[in-house]
Design a protein around this nucleic acid. Structure first.
Lengths: 119, 119
DNA sequence: AAAGATACATAGAATATCTATGTATTACAA
DNA sequence: TTGTAATACATAGATATTCTATGTATCTTT
């Protein structure tokens, strides 16, 4: 599994945990593998989250009290469902606002033109 | 000087060098301090680039052949003007496209709602 | 005379993600 | 039935970028 065949690796930094929190808002509870597939589909295959990125991120969100976990046995295989805590819901909203504001600012800078037409 | 009083530190990652390249497109040649002030103004004080971030970034862009430098003496103080190389111009356009595409994808994910109304 | 702004620079810390690897089950096709 | 791909978890160590902190020095303004 590869990350971001289209996007530089650094771009996702600072946004991965927010993406995870957002998906949990929409889906109420999800397990790790499901999250990778959902992001893959929503991003049109442009964001491919690797296990080495996802699981540490999930564990950190858990440690920070933003999500809770529920372990379920599916046959002989385990599955860990994650869902938002109250704190997680709050932080999610804040992080989304922050990213959107940042994107607006960035878009403004990257679209800025000084093109003086001398006629 | 502080970075991003409003934005988490990780958000800027992967975008700083593109911001610098973009400013050089608009201004043709700029020196370091000038870049920090321009970004500050364009971002409405929301992105404050620190020297410890800026100068290493400039040196790396130089090493990668994306910008060239011209040293000028202003009184007894030196000033280093940077400007885009041909390669830098190309890479700048690619990076801007990449970021904008990423922002579109991210915006889609972060705005996605499943809200089924049962009437 | 002092403080703040201008202007460069670098060493080392912090942090998030990636690469690579590991284990194991289930489904499917040859 | 055998092998491959997909499912599903996990972690150790590498990588890369930015930050913190510090340093030097000039110029401007109070």
């Amino acid at each position: 599994m590869y990350l971001c065949p289209m996007y530089s690796k650094e771009l996702l930094k600072g946004t991965l945990s927010t993406i995870i929190l957002k998906l949990l808002e929409n889906n109420e509870k999800m397990y790790g593998y499901q999250i990778t597939q959902e992001v893959k589909e929503l991003s049109d295959e442009k964001i491919l989250i690797k296990e080495g990125s996802l699981y540490p991120a999930l564990h950190k969100l858990k440690d920070d009290g933003l999500i809770e976990v529920e372990t379920v046995n599916i046959g002989k295989r385990i599955r860990r469902y994650y869902f938002l805590t109250k704190k997680g819901t709050k932080v999610k909203d804040e992080k989304i606002s922050e990213i959107k504001s940042f994107m607006n600012t960035l878009n403004k800078i990257l679209s800025f033109h000084i093109k003086i037409q001398l006629t």
